[in-house]
Every structure is written in C-alpha cells, then in structure tokens.
Amino acid sequence: MKNRILIVEDDEAIASAVALSLQVAGYDCAVFDDGAGAAEALQGDHAYDLALLDIMLPGVDGFELFDHMQTYHIPVIYMTAKTDSASEIRGLRDGAEDYVVKPFDVQTLMVRIEKVLRRTGRLNTVYRVRDVELNSETKTVTKSGQPVYLQPLEFGVLLMLLKYKNMTVTREQLMTEVWGYDYVGETRVLDIKIHSLRKKLDLTDAIRTLPKLGYRLEER
C-alpha cells in the first residue's frame, strides 16, 4: 500500500515538482491548485495519509482548508513563503504537524513527511523494488517471497535507497544516515556494502552508480 499525499499548491511549477519527486519515490499524489477545489474533492475521496498545503491560496486559503483536513483526520504540513513567525505560530497552534518554508528541498520535505506519517501511525513500512520487499518494521528482506539475510549496515543502505527511490542519494547522505555523523574512516566500506547488496538481491543494474555523486535505485 502506497501512502497517499494530497498537495494543494497554486503554483503549477512547484506542485508538479513536488508531486513528481514524491511519485518516483513511491508515494501516490493528488494535486489541486485551489483551496475550494480541494475542499470539494475531499467530500468524495478523503483517503489521504497526509496533506501538503500552501497557505496563500486563491479563494479558500491554507488555514481555512486545515479545518476540512481535521474533519477527515488528515495530518497537515504547510508549505509557505510566509516567514513571519505569526503565521507559523498560528499554523502549529491550530494543530498542523509541521511546516516547510519556501524555498525548500524535496528530500528535506520527504524526511518531514516520513516523520509525520510515522508519528500518526500511517507510515507504509513495506518498500518494494522489483521482486525485493523490505519491511522496516520487522527488519526483514525477502526476494520473491524468500527471506534474504542482510547485515545491519547492508539493510540500512538498502532502506535509504528505497526511501528515495529513483532519486540520487549522495555518499555523504548514506554515510551520515547509516554509519552515523561521527564515523571517521574508509568510505570504501560503502562501496563494499553496495556490491554485496547488488549480488545478494540481484540488483546490479537497478542500483546505479553515479560517479562523484552517489547511488540511485532505479525502477521506472
């Protein structure tokens, strides 16, 4: 089951970029460019795990839309260009889970989305690529339904690549996330783990090496 995200943003360029980034990473997205349209559509389909709301929307604005989200118990993250603390405070006091200030980075947004989903118990903990399935809850990996044993570090690397599927994950990101901030040592250990992942799970062509950048788990 993919997590479903509702995006309400009147700027088409921003909305399309956010939606595309989330879709390739394994989320389902629905985009609306005005508050009234989104509110109307919610009456029919409101099975969303999370809503990303712009505050400055034509007609029904983000703050008004928030009330509709509460009706259907959809957690909210605001996307706002308003940097004044008054609107932040209002957003959070009313019960929004979090907010990001424009300009923001999609991977930062994704971290926040994941946190909110986990906090509200909606996070999809099963990630898939081809016939490989990873369950971050039970810490298990299967290939074609058969359990495959991975070392903890291998598991960590695979989870990162799956979270940002189709997106480049830099070596720095991987080292910090999997080995920890204070790891000082050979970064070649990363290459070794990638190599063994490719072999154990038969993902040689799926895990792409991007020279000088990092790795990308591709499936499109």
Binding site: A13, A17, V106, T168
Partner: peptide, 17 residues
Amino acid sequence: TPLTAILLHTRLLQKVN
C-alpha cells in the same frame, strides 16, 4: 515562489532518473 519552483526542478533534473 519562482525561486522554489526553479530549485525544485533543478533538483529533479539532478537527482531523479
């Protein structure tokens, strides 16, 4: 708003296949 859009699309081009 336009800066955010430019940044997001640049990252898309950089990071996503």
